[in-house]
Each structure stands twice: as structure tokens, then as C-alpha cells.
Simulated assay, not measured.
Amino acid sequence: MQETPMNRNVEIRMRHWVYVDGVKFFGPGRLELLVRIAETGSMAKAAKDMGMSYKKAWAMVDEMNALGQNPYVVARKGGQKGGGTELTETGRKVIEAYKELNRKLMKVVEAESELLQLI
């Protein structure tokens, strides 16, 4: 019989996405992008912080804006303060809804943690 180590770190990891008409629409990467846009007010800074190209970040935002019921992100034109990017109220609500969904799913995982003792 094989011995098993007593101090093993066994955990469940979970990632989830929202699909619209069978297309992956929103998940951890887009959440992070929206959060960073909210923090920095800049698509370029948000993309750079994530190690992502500006073009890819805009493509993601364009897709969210097109498939969502309302736009999530809007660009501000230049001026005295310069241009920038900001979240709409819908974008802020989507962040909170996704985080709440994540909290609920993690509670389910934690409630089933006795399963980990069997592994």
C-alpha cells in the first residue's frame, strides 16, 4: 500500500465565464480590464498593466460594448484634461455583478470542502 503525505495542499480552483449566444462574452480577463480602466482612466495604461496590446484591449471593449445591453466603456475626447477612457454605470454594475457571482460560487466550493479530505 502506498503512503500519502499528511501535509498536502489540496484545493479546488474555479474560473467561470458568461456566454452570450454561445460566444464567450465575460470572464476574469475582461473583469480585470474593466477594473484597471476604472482605476487608471486609460485604456492604454490598463492594457499595459495587463501585458496586453492596446489593440487587443480595444477589441475586447468593442465586443463588450456591442454584445452588452448597453456600453460598458466610453472614450473621452482630448481637451484641457486630455482624453481618456471611463466605465459607464453599466460597466460598473457588471463588475459588481460578476464579483458577486464569484463570491456565491466560492461559497458553494467552500461548503463542499469536505470532498477535499477524500482526495
Results as ranks from 00 to 15, higher is better:
L115W: 08
E86K: 07
G41T: 00
K24S: 14
L118E: 10
L34S: 04
G68S: 14
T4P: 06
E86H: 03
T90N: 12
E39W: 00
G29I: 05
M14L: 11
M52F: 03
R15D: 15
T90E: 15
W17L: 12
R13P: 05
V94C: 04
E96F: 02
V74Q: 06
L105W: 05
V74E: 13
G78K: 13
Q117A: 14
E63Y: 04
G27A: 12
M106A: 13
A111L: 08
A75W: 05
R8L: 08
A59H: 07
G84S: 02
G41R: 00
A46W: 01
N70I: 04
M6A: 14
R15H: 11
L34T: 01
L67Q: 11
P71L: 04
K55N: 12
A97N: 04
L33N: 03
P28L: 02
E96Q: 12
G51C: 03
H16Q: 09
E114N: 12
E96A: 13
M52S: 04
K56Y: 11
K77C: 06
V109L: 14
T4D: 05
V23R: 15
G79I: 13
K107A: 14
M60V: 11
A44M: 06
G22C: 04
T90M: 11
E63W: 01
K45G: 03
Q80F: 12
P28I: 01
